[in-house]
Amino acid sequence: MASQNNLGPKRLVVGAHYGLRDWLAQRVSAVVMAIYTLILLVWFFAAQAFSYDGWASIFAAQWMKAATFVALLALFYHAWVGLRDIWMDYVKPLSVRLTLQVLTIVWLLVCAGYAVQILWRV
């Protein structure tokens, strides 16, 4: 009888098995965004001119554009993991959940494309 209770090391494990990966992705993307925020704050408060030209000069350097792009990718991935988890936890009808997930992906890709367009226009 004890072998049929599905407890212990021989229990049946089900599920998607990506909880640790998503947890780690959320933390790493949050750290990337925090570091970028600190860099931006230091750069902003060290700037002399608080004008459009001063703000544009921050993003004129190629490394700052790359850092901003990495921070935006971290933001979009962070948002994807969080929204996907919300849809999976609270939206039970499969068709509605998949529709919301697809709309979320499309929205995040449009945001990423728009961010690239703005970033490399400066």
Results as ranks from 00 to 15, higher is better:
Phe69Leu: 14
Trp55Leu: 11
Phe50Lys: 09
Trp63Glu: 12
Leu73Gln: 06
Trp43Pro: 02
Ala61Gly: 07
Trp55Ala: 11
Ala71Tyr: 00
Gln48Lys: 15
Leu38Arg: 05
Phe45Leu: 11
Ser51Glu: 13
Phe50Thr: 08
Trp55Val: 11
Ala56Ile: 07
Ala66His: 09
Leu72Arg: 08
Ile35Leu: 01
Tyr36Thr: 00
Ala46His: 11
Phe69Lys: 06
Ile58Arg: 03
Leu73Phe: 02
Met33Pro: 03
Val42Glu: 02
Ala49Lys: 13
Trp43Glu: 15
Tyr36Met: 01
Met64Arg: 06
Tyr77Met: 07
Trp63Lys: 13
Ala66Thr: 14
Phe59Thr: 03
Ala74Asp: 01
Phe45His: 11
Ile58Pro: 01
Val32Ala: 03
Ala46Asp: 13
Leu40Ser: 11
Ala49Leu: 09
Ala66Tyr: 12
Ser57Tyr: 06
Tyr36Gln: 03
Ala61Ser: 11
Ala34Asp: 00
Leu73Pro: 00
Gln48His: 15
Leu72Ile: 13
Leu38Ser: 08
Ile39Ala: 09
Ala61Arg: 06
Met33Ser: 06
Val42Leu: 05
Phe44Leu: 12
Ala49Glu: 15
Ile58Trp: 05
Phe44Ser: 14
Gln48Trp: 08
Ile39Leu: 12
Phe69Met: 11
Ala49Phe: 10
Trp63Tyr: 14
Ala66Arg: 08
Leu73Asp: 03
Phe50Ile: 05
Thr68Pro: 02
Ala49Val: 15
Ala61Thr: 10
Gly54Arg: 05
Tyr77Thr: 11
Ala71Leu: 00
Ile58Glu: 07
Phe76Asp: 02
Trp63Leu: 10
Ile35Tyr: 00
Thr68His: 09
Trp43Leu: 14
Val32Asp: 03
Asp53Gln: 13
Ala60Lys: 07
Gln48Cys: 12
Phe69Ala: 11
Leu41Pro: 01
Val32Phe: 02
Val32Cys: 03
Ala47Tyr: 13
Met33Arg: 04
Trp43Ser: 15
Ala66Glu: 09
Met33Gly: 04
Ile35Asp: 00
Ile39Val: 14
Ala46Trp: 07
Gly54Leu: 04
Phe69Asp: 07
Gln62Ile: 12
Leu75Cys: 02
Leu72Pro: 01
Asp53His: 09
Ile39Gly: 01
Ala47Met: 15
Asp53Phe: 10
Ile58Phe: 10
Lys65Val: 09
Tyr52Val: 12
Trp43Phe: 13
Ile39Tyr: 09
Tyr77Gln: 08
Leu40Val: 13
Ala67Tyr: 13
Ile35Trp: 00
Tyr77Gly: 08
Ile39Thr: 12
Ala56Met: 06
Ile35Phe: 00
Gly54His: 05
Ala46Glu: 14
Ser57Cys: 04
Gly54Gln: 05
Tyr36Trp: 04
Tyr36Leu: 00
Ala61Glu: 13
